[in-house]
Simulated assay, not measured.
Amino acid sequence: MNNILIKKTTAFFEENFGSEPKKIVLSPGRINIIGEHVDYNDGYVLPAAIDKIICFAFEKNYTNTSKIIAIDLDDSFEVDLTTDMELTDNVWTNYIRGVINQLKIKGFEFDGFNCVFSSNIPVGSGLSSSAALECGFLFGINELFELKIKPVDIALMGQSAEHWVGINCGIMDQFSSVMGQENKVIKIDCRTLEYEYHEANFSDYSLVLFDSNVKHSLMTSAYNERRQQCEEGIAIIKSNFPEIASFRDCNEQHVLKLQDVMSANVFKRCLFVVKEIKRVRLACDALDKGDFETLGKLMFETHQGLSVDYEVSCAELDMIVDTLKKEDAVVGSRLMGGGFGGCTINLIKKGHEERIKQQLSALYLETFGIELKIYDVKIGNGTSLYIAK
């Protein structure tokens, strides 16, 4: 599938610019195995790069202007690199401008270039196509002009570019897109950015994403509200337990002892966060032992917490997970991402995938009148140069 995308992107470049590209870059989307809504609570996350990618083709053009073509959008724009970058109404171009802005702010010197890109990452499904766009574009410029930017700094600059666009994201998406390794997940410490790899060779299992195909409008307001509730909760915990600096220093008993001095919602949010941080640690232990049954159990527990305590699920996502929980062949399932729609991530024993896909799709259509989207994913490498064999 990616070979087809690479050929298409390369051919399009040659057709438009009359020469072969000098650099081809592959930049992946990402999944998160476990560790939801803890990135802004000093927790750990457990993401991985996947085999859905954006393919970029680059060459220098020896001017002060760059031309960038988005094949899938049938759109393009030119940018004068000598001018200050400004946001525009054409949203996709802002991510590109944001990267150029980061390079200029940090004093990197580079000239004009031509770039085309195309993607097989489903947009709007919570697989971080924006992070893949920022980091792949930056990686390509870095390679083309030999800027010697370190991979971790590419991730951080990608995050800053997204902040410039107006989306206050954490570091997980860019970090996993750049730093991913095949058949490995990355445990990222969201407080220090320390990271470690854990084997995730799902040889007897398939990772399948079921996209609910719904987006409930509560997302932004609810996200901000959850952050405020967590800030209120940790302030109460710190005032009662001075030795505690953040949620990762807490256990469930700390939260339970303070139930009477917290509002019901603040208590539930805090309890979820403390349990979820613990689940990430347990998930790493399970992966190290090749214990996928325990990993799956933790995924189900995360969904229950997100639905009941953090209250960011919805009827469609709950229906998917509840249905799959009755299936012996599904060892784990949970909503992935911010919630209120988007995907569930599901760990299914090989040999049962097609039956489960067909049965769930039919039941979902019957229940909600909505087509379920389905994506098979494998854990792949982070952003890299493509070298033709």
Rank of each mutant, 00 (worst) to 15 (best):
I6Q: 01
F17P: 07
I33T: 02
I53A: 03
S66M: 08
K67Y: 05
I69L: 04
I69F: 13
I71D: 01
D74T: 03
D75S: 14
E78C: 13
L81K: 09
L81R: 11
T88M: 06
V91A: 04
Q102E: 15
F113S: 00
S119Q: 07
A131Y: 05
E134F: 00
C135T: 15
F139Q: 00
L144W: 14
I154A: 06
E162S: 05
W164S: 12
W164C: 10
C169S: 15
M172V: 05
S176C: 01
M179F: 03
E182V: 01
D189S: 04
S203C: 06
L207H: 07
V208L: 11
N213K: 08
E231N: 15
I236Q: 01
I237D: 03
N240K: 13
N251M: 04
V261W: 09
V261P: 00
V261C: 12
L282W: 00
L282Q: 08
K289S: 01
G290Y: 01
L295G: 00
L295R: 06
L298Y: 15
I320T: 13
V330M: 04
R334I: 08
E354D: 08
I356N: 05
Q359N: 14
I374C: 06
V377W: 10
I379S: 02
I387S: 10
A388G: 08
